[in-house]
């Protein structure tokens, strides 16, 4: 039995190592490309072992450090607020839907799910948010439209509540006189840490990587989020290199390492998420067991 088990462990590690390598190597290539000399990319393509290293891409971004730091600030703010608020309303909606005894539960589930099927399109949504709520050029414009809550996560969380939290536990809490809301906060949520951490993680990623809301609702550069700023730097820059500048110094533009800057931007966009990840992983352990609550 013991040997059998350790063979199993070896097998698991082997498979996971291979998968990890598949995921890690491209990222490594991305990183190495960001510190490669642009000319050696044009001449030889991407390589794990480039001819010449260069920090030119990061130096180029360093020019804009003031704006980039400000944009980090905006992104961190919307990520924190958006994730927290989104998580709360998602859980609050998912829990009643998970209750089999909830009247009209099926109907409400369908109401939630239907939003995944039919989409009114961009123009009407833009109209609602700009004309009805005037979210243009506000921080809320980055937080609310599209991202705050997603039917997908509601359904996911609903399923978790329904399967992982046995109804008798809830019932017995109720018998003990706890109100629905107290049961939810004191019993359901502590048991649901893994799913809350998962949804929180994805919410964080979506807010962190969002450029779409910024594009639609923000024209004021003071409110640019990180991805918006990086996109604009890149797109504007692409334009400059392909157009002909009237002034004399356009040669400097073709000197800017376009491809490596693109990769460097990806790196500075991804790294903070990787740093934040362990925070979510802390909750990826078995929460309080049901036995503990019963006892």
């Amino acid at each position: 039995m013991k040997t059998n088990n350790s063979i199993g462990q070896w097998f698991v590690h082997l498979v996971l190592l291979v998968i990890s390598a598949c995921c890690l190597l491209p990222f490594l290539l991305l990183f190495i490309t960001s510190i490669t000399d642009e000319q050696s990319i044009i001449r030889h393509g991407y390589s794990f072992f480039p001819e010449t290293f260069s920090l030119a891409a990061y130096q180029y971004l360093w020019h804009d450090i003031g704006r980039i730091l400000h944009a980090y600030g905006i992104t961190i703010a919307i990520t924190l607020i958006g994730t927290a608020a989104g998580l709360i309303i998602t859980a609050l909606l998912a829990y009643p839907l998970s209750r089999k005894d909830m009247p009209l539960g099926r109907f409400w589930s369908f109401v939630v799910f239907f939003t995944m099927l039919l989409n009114g399109g961009l123009v009407p949504q833009y109209l609602v948010y700009t004309q009805l709520f005037e979210l243009k050029n506000t921080l809320l414009g980055l937080i609310v439209p599209g991202l705050l809550m997603n039917a997908f996560y509601v359904m996911m969380m609903r399923t978790f509540f329904a399967t992982s939290i046995p109804f008798p536990v809830i019932e017995s809490a109720n018998i003990d006189g706890a109100g629905e809301f107290r049961t939810f906060v004191q019993i359901v949520l502590p048991l649901s840490m893994p799913i809350l951490a998962t949804v929180g993680l994805f919410q964080t990623i979506h807010y962190w990587n969002d450029w779409f809301n910024g594009m639609l609702y923000i024209t004021d550069s003071k409110l640019f989020s990180l991805q918006n700023l990086l996109n604009r730097i890149l797109l504007d820059f692409d334009f400059l290199t392909s157009s002909n500048f009237a002034g004399g110094n356009a040669a400097e533009l073709t000197d800017v390492p376009r491809e490596t800057v693109r990769m460097a931007m990806a790196v500075i966009g991804i790294v903070p998420i990787l740093i934040a990840y362990p925070f979510f992983q802390r909750y990826f352990v078995k929460g309080l067991t049901i036995g503990a609550i019963k006892g």
């Binding site: 309303i89 609050l92 909606l93 409400w108 009114g120 399109g121 123009v123 009407p124 609602v128 809550m149």
Partner: peptide, 19 residues
């Protein structure tokens, strides 16, 4: 408990569906 979530879906999804 469902109100905030449903309200959001109303604004974010159902209102624009007239489109």
């Amino acid at each position: 408990m469902m109100v905030p979530g449903l309200l959001y879906l109303l604004i974010n999804n159902y209102l624009p569906m007239f489109g």
